[in-house]
Design a protein around this nucleic acid. Structure first.
Lengths: 193, 193
DNA sequence: CAGCCAAGTCAACGCTTGTTGGCATAGGGT
DNA sequence: ACCCTATGCCAACAAGCGTTGACTTGGCTG
């Protein structure tokens, strides 16, 4: 029985995402992916050229961030965290990237690019302008930490929380980072517009 | 020239911490550690038995968390984040554990134990009692995220911030997680003592 | 000076990894 | 019925890993 090439490719991609999400790029093996797809490891090379090519084909990072400029200023934080929660459970692209990035500086660069090209441009217009970069960075720390604790390390109390609880707790934090007065109110450049 | 055994052991440990911090447990190699210590890989095995033994000897996690009960209730957040910042730059034990834990469930368990045995017991008494576990988890997300962004992924805006800026921004967040009213102000059990 | 023990080197093992090239086979178009 | 091509498998490679055991050297003690 010979499957179609498209079917096999898709089966490999599914298995690859599974393995990359569980073990990260380096610990995931081509052989394990092939086994999960019920196929010979050589097929992976035929269709994707190399392990790196497989990764690139399997992982395309699109955070699908909403346009925050059409969100009421007071609800930006809640909107952001709600979006990320649903986005995380849509597929495990982000877990893959997290697991792969930690411990490899090249993949860290990959994630830095995601921050630079997707998070920063979306978040900064919603932030107080004079310190927008800092604020976007702070938002990233909270979101990264939540993802790490809940989906990677699986800290029990963080796993146990419901979406609504998380939104109610973390939303104000993001709001604080984006819109509140600077540290200690120490930035005279701050302008409430 | 023959060094003393203690000197060699210590040189190996220093090199090991460096390698583990840079690459995590799995990607760090015994051979690289040995090379950095200007020594034969076999010496590592003689002194530490195995790579796992080396790791255990090189990494002992003591967060040295202060006693929060002697800190004014309003300053718990600032005290916590200030402590972690100085602790992180004291040595790179935590970076090692972070880099090693992501992508290996056994090491993730290790980090979960650190949370359970050190963070939770220290933080929970300072939190509102009826939801102490959740609150400790939230604190962990913010601290983990900051460490990941600043010391592992090295997001530029997060690296650029000074200690005082971070303390001023993140302190209130931790304070919020520990002491503020529950989500939606829904916990009437909160008591200001 | 002889001998012994700690400190260190060396070569090799078994294993796993990504990757390659050659070989089988099925199946549809002519 | 034939053949050609896409699909797939198998065996093997080179490299890197942790780990092992036997050997060499240096320096102190008697």
């Amino acid at each position: 029985m010979t499957r179609s090439a498209a079917m096999t490719k898709s089966a490999i991609l599914i298995a690859a995402r599974e393995q990359f999400a569980r073990h990260g790029y380096h610990r995931a093996t081509v052989r394990a992916v092939a086994a999960a797809a019920a196929i010979d490891p050589a097929m992976v090379m035929r269709y994707f050229g190399s392990k790196a090519g497989l990764f690139e084909a399997a992982v395309t990072v699109d955070l699908e961030l909403p346009d925050l400029s059409s969100v009421p200023a007071g609800q930006v934080g809640h909107t952001l965290i709600r979006h990320f929660l649903t986005r995380w459970e849509q597929d495990d692209t982000l877990v893959i990237l997290l697991r792969s990035s930690i411990g490899d500086s090249e993949f860290a660069e990959h994630l830095r690019q995601v921050f630079l090209q997707q998070v920063a441009p979306t978040v900064q217009p919603a932030a107080e302008p004079s310190s927008a970069a800092h604020r976007a960075g702070l938002v990233a720390t909270q979101i990264l930490g939540l993802a790490t604790a809940r989906y990677v390390l699986e800290l029990p109390p963080v796993v146990a929380m419901s979406h609504e609880e998380i939104i109610a707790w973390v939303g104000p934090t993001l709001q604080h980072y984006l819109r509140d007065g600077g540290p200690l109110g120490a930035h005279p450049s701050e302008v409430a517009q």
